[in-house]
Computed example of a mutant assay.
Amino acid sequence: MSNPTGRYEPLARVAFDDGWQSLEELPPFTTTVATDTARKVITRNESPDISFDRSINPYRGCEHGCVYCFARPTHAYLGLSPGLDFESKLFMKPDAPELLARELAAKGYAPKTIAIGTNTDPYQPIERKTGLMRRILEVLEAAGHPVGIVTKSDLILRDVDILARMAERRLVRVALSVTTLDRGLARTMEPRAPTPPRRLAALRGLAEAGVPTTVMVAPVIPAINDAEIERILDAAAAAGVESAGYVLLRLPLEVRDLFQDWLRTHYPDRERRVFTLMRQMRGGKDYDATFGRRMTGSGPYAWMLGRRFETACARLGLNLSRTPLTTEHFVPPRDPTARQLELF
């Protein structure tokens, strides 16, 4: 993975091999974690083609290092690179649970499903040390607030006790992204994410615990993993998922060049084919961010992918029903300042 300068920086630095430095002299890959001092933790959106209007992202940046991640360009807002910086220079919100409790307790707050993991993975490796996601779930469980979680990590099974209790009250749904069943492809495309078998095992463990589960075949990349759609759905159905979804590869801003560099390195014979098909599905462009088309594309090839996905789901009995989440259990958390006043 390269480390191009962020698009807002006045100077661009390009690394090249001048022959004087050997691979042995390269510094080891390290990860740093800084504090994100956000004053609010719930982010609102008005996008018409997604099913939620609020989300939480406990972390900025993601150690999984997925080359196609559409969240990479957000690191440019911090003066950092969407390349290696996105994977190694992370930010966390250590007081996210407290901020969440305060926002849920605010006068006039109307509960509605909160999405977590829609930008960066809440169960990336750093979560093993911080336990930030578990603390957030504890706040949501205590408040009876519904949540939808998206992840690639089997670390979510650590919190299956909370998730199972929330599922009994229809307060949680979990989606795991399974991009490929090919270990080699997964290793190069998602270098530090859990392997496909571990993700399928996580789906099985959640389903057995009574947690409504969804498999996301995402992203679908033509000429790379689109041939696996049916196999992934077969494996997920065997693990007990009740629903499935898919998202076409998205290449906004810097992601386009990063992904192209990855293709040239690992699949040089397919680079032209991949981009030709992508442009067919994106109105002649590498990416089309138009609402309603950005997730699935348009044109004959996109239509074929959609029909294949729908046919496989129908054969497997997926998406026939979907466990609805409820807000009927919501009780606003008590304001910590109010508790202090009770002492007088």
Score class of each variant (00 low, 15 high):
Thr120Met: 06
Gly79Thr: 05
Leu341Arg: 14
Leu277Met: 08
His329Ala: 14
Ala164Gln: 15
Cys69His: 11
Ala202Phe: 00
Asp161Val: 13
Pro28Ala: 04
Ala101Trp: 01
Leu325His: 00
Asp36Trp: 15
Ser2Arg: 10
Leu176Val: 07
Leu206Ala: 09
Lys129Gly: 11
Leu277Glu: 04
Pro27Gln: 00
Leu251Ser: 07
Tyr301Gly: 02
Gly79Phe: 02
Glu46Asp: 15
Thr265Glu: 15
Glu9Asp: 12
Arg102Glu: 11
Pro73Arg: 05
Arg44Val: 05
Asp257Gln: 12
Arg339Leu: 09
Val220Gly: 08
Ala207Val: 03
Trp262Gly: 12
Asp161Cys: 14
Glu310Thr: 09
Asp269Ile: 05
Pro194Leu: 03
Thr296Glu: 07
Asp234Asn: 06
Arg294Gln: 10
Arg293Gln: 04
Glu127Phe: 03
Pro336Ser: 05
Pro97Trp: 03
Leu80Lys: 02
Pro197Met: 00
Thr337Tyr: 07
Thr118Ala: 14
Ala314Ser: 14
Ile126Lys: 09
Arg173Asp: 05
Ala110Met: 00
Arg315Trp: 13
Tyr59Cys: 14
Ala223Tyr: 04
Leu140Ser: 08
Thr180Phe: 03
Ala202Cys: 02
Met281Ala: 04
Pro191Arg: 06
Pro222Trp: 09
His266Arg: 13
Phe29Asp: 08
Leu343Ser: 01
Phe29Thr: 09
Thr37Leu: 10
Leu137Ser: 13
Arg334Pro: 01
Asn3Arg: 06
Tyr68Cys: 12
Leu157Asn: 10
Thr276Leu: 15
Ala201Ile: 02
Pro191Thr: 06
Arg322Gln: 12
Val211Gly: 14
Leu132Gln: 13
Ile114Arg: 07
